[in-house]
Design a protein around this nucleic acid. Structure first.
Lengths: 168, 168
DNA sequence: TTGAACTTTCAAAATATTGTGAAAGATGGA
DNA sequence: TCCATCTTTCACAATATTTTGAAAGTTCAA
């Protein structure tokens, strides 16, 4: 396989992956393009490469910057802004995990905390079942929170070394 | 908060969570309803409770059964089918993880494997950068695969005990 | 074998999400 | 200040996903 085809396939695959997460397809494609491009790219180059509009490019690049996955680069003598992606995959995963935890886990933890205080008597089997469900889910969610927080803070080597050896 | 309101809030919250995953909102709501209901429910009861159509109910219940999250129950003397959800949250998470790994991680692993064999000379800095990106991502993806496979197979106690203690 | 009770399917409608591009808003050099 | 260049916004258009409900399919007791 030649490089241009390989690039296209990677962009496509990363895009599908993104689409299944809360990241939208184009955002993931822009990210993919920047990931495999060594130097910085301008908005125009991204537009041309992915065949998307200026507005779309702008919005998705901005969102990638919000996630911390992409940074602006100023090139002396150029008016345009250029963009580069964080290339270290461990950092990339860590940033994505942090963002998704904030959007997904944190809100449900809040709701679960409130729901634990539902009124009613445990003699009512519906109340009892509800309490037990919430309790179980809450216990798990708190553990997941601990685990993810640790993972986000941890070092690459800890993951590839310690944890992985334990799991294998 | 009274039970009916708490139920509604939980269904709502679980639905939003599902929507951010590849699970659709209604599927997650049906799941939530079954999770907090101690006994089995019929399609009609689900329809009534969530205000959704018969077709929608059928499709989503069927999908939940495919995921292994919900089972059919036959009640003697009744023609109707009834449904119950797996209540053990550890099993629930394990089933969801298995399904998502199959849909998301496995396909990208396949693509990465192919892309590792891109033609070209490392003297070309684009080829070099591409290879390095793919290599890094591939290494991580394989590790994630190992980690998730182990997690899916592992016992509840291992997660709440061993792993969590290590992370705290 | 019939028909009532129930489940499944699927084309069309409703809804939600994403993308476009022209216009408005910045920015900075002369 | 002015103007050329670049960025951002946003109403509308295009796409994609989800839901509906009526019709077709299935099952089983009589």
């Amino acid at each position: 396989m030649k490089l241009p085809e390989a690039k296209a396939q990677f962009i496509q695959a990363w895009g599908s992956l993104g689409a299944q997460w809360s990241i939208n397809r184009t955002m993931a494609q822009v990210h993919a393009l920047l990931l495999i491009t060594p130097g910085p790219l301008s908005a125009d180059e991204i537009m041309a490469e992915l065949n998307i509009s200026r507005g779309n490019t702008n919005m998705n690049v901005r969102e990638l910057i919000n996630w911390g996955l992409v940074g602006k680069v100023l090139i002396p003598g150029e008016r345009k802004e250029f963009f580069v992606a964080e290339k270290d995959i461990w950092k990339v995963v860590s940033l994505i995990t942090r963002e998704r935890k904030k959007r997904e886990l944190d809100p449900i933890l809040k709701v679960l905390h409130q729901l634990a205080e539902v009124e009613g008597d445990n003699k009512d089997k519906n109340v009892k079942a509800f309490r037990e469900s919430i309790e179980g889910i809450n216990k798990f969610a708190k553990s997941a929170d601990t685990a993810l927080t640790a993972l986000i803070k941890s070092e690459e080597n800890w993951f590839y070394g310690t944890l992985l050896k334990m799991l294998k």
